[in-house]
């Protein structure tokens, strides 16, 4: 294990025409951590992820992933990462198993079929593995998507809004999957617009606003930015989510 940061970003800028999306982003993500990039729509989260995964060039500044510069050594970066984009990047016409085998073959791994079967069982998809992805639910599709990103055990994983558009149960499934990853030493940088998601999953949280990181640290660090909580008595009512999950009998 190295102690060097898994992701290091300094002074990164990116504009589309006159519109500055990133105005100098600095961030350092320690290896093996789950880092949440929190921001509203249009804050530049996806742009940042695309630069880090070599899909887009930055205008200025530097970024390195797993010790490789994204601009100078894109191929080395691609060997170290996996990207799970905003829209499930799965092939609907193929089966779940075929999707995993495809990625394993593209990564030139040995025994792609064994790798596929292993990931299917890890993600509770063994029964569905032989079915076409078009028949999967949103949550299954997302889990397959994340499973495809884990083929070949890349040390750094980018998850761009992994739970957007999912129902509450599927969202909890995905959360469980992501927290298991960090236990295995994978560095996860995830973007989200849900505060609760960042709170649930992340070791550290960075808030991206107007193209800059305006705050970052652990949840406790961020809470310390505000005045200490005053003790008040509030009648605790169940949230609609609690009610929904109780009624539909979620086992989580």
């Amino acid at each position: 294990m190295t102690t060097a940061p898994a992701i290091e970003i300094a002074g990164l800028t990116k504009s589309y025409g006159d519109h500055a999306v990133l105005r100098g982003v600095d961030l350092s993500v320690p290896p093996g951590s789950i880092y949440a990039l929190l921001g509203s729509n249009g804050a530049g989260k996806t742009t940042l992820i695309k630069i880090l995964s070599t899909l887009l060039h930055a205008d200025d500044g530097r970024a390195s992933v797993a010790g490789h510069d994204v601009a100078d050594q894109p191929r080395r970066v691609r060997e170290s990462i996996s990207l799970t984009g905003q829209f499930a990047a799965v092939d609907e016409i193929l089966t779940g198993r075929e999707n995993l085998v495809l990625v394993a073959q593209l990564r030139h791994l040995r025994e792609p079929h064994a790798i596929a079967d292993d990931l299917l069982s890890r993600f509770d998809l063994s029964d569905a593995g032989g079915r076409r992805v078009a028949t999967y639910s949103g949550g299954m599709r997302r889990r397959l998507d994340i499973a495809m990103s884990l083929v070949g055990d890349p040390p750094v994983l980018f998850l761009d809004e992994p739970t957007t558009g999912l129902d509450p149960q599927s969202r909890i499934e995905v959360w469980r999957t992501v927290s298991e990853l960090a236990g295995r030493g994978t560095t996860v940088l995830l973007t989200t617009q849900y505060l609760e998601e960042a709170e649930q999953l992340a070791d550290r949280i960075a808030i991206l606003h107007d193209g800059r990181i305006i705050a970052d640290g652990t949840l406790a660090d961020l809470q310390a930015l505000l005045p200490p909580a005053a003790v008040e008595y509030v009648e605790k009512r169940p949230t609609l989510e609690d009610i929904f999950l109780t009624i539909v009998g979620s086992n989580s």
Partner: peptide, 13 residues
């Protein structure tokens, strides 16, 4: 249109 092309582009192929 789907995300699959971006996945391919972010892989070492």
């Amino acid at each position: 249109q789907g995300g699959i092309f971006e996945r391919f582009q972010s892989m070492p192929i």
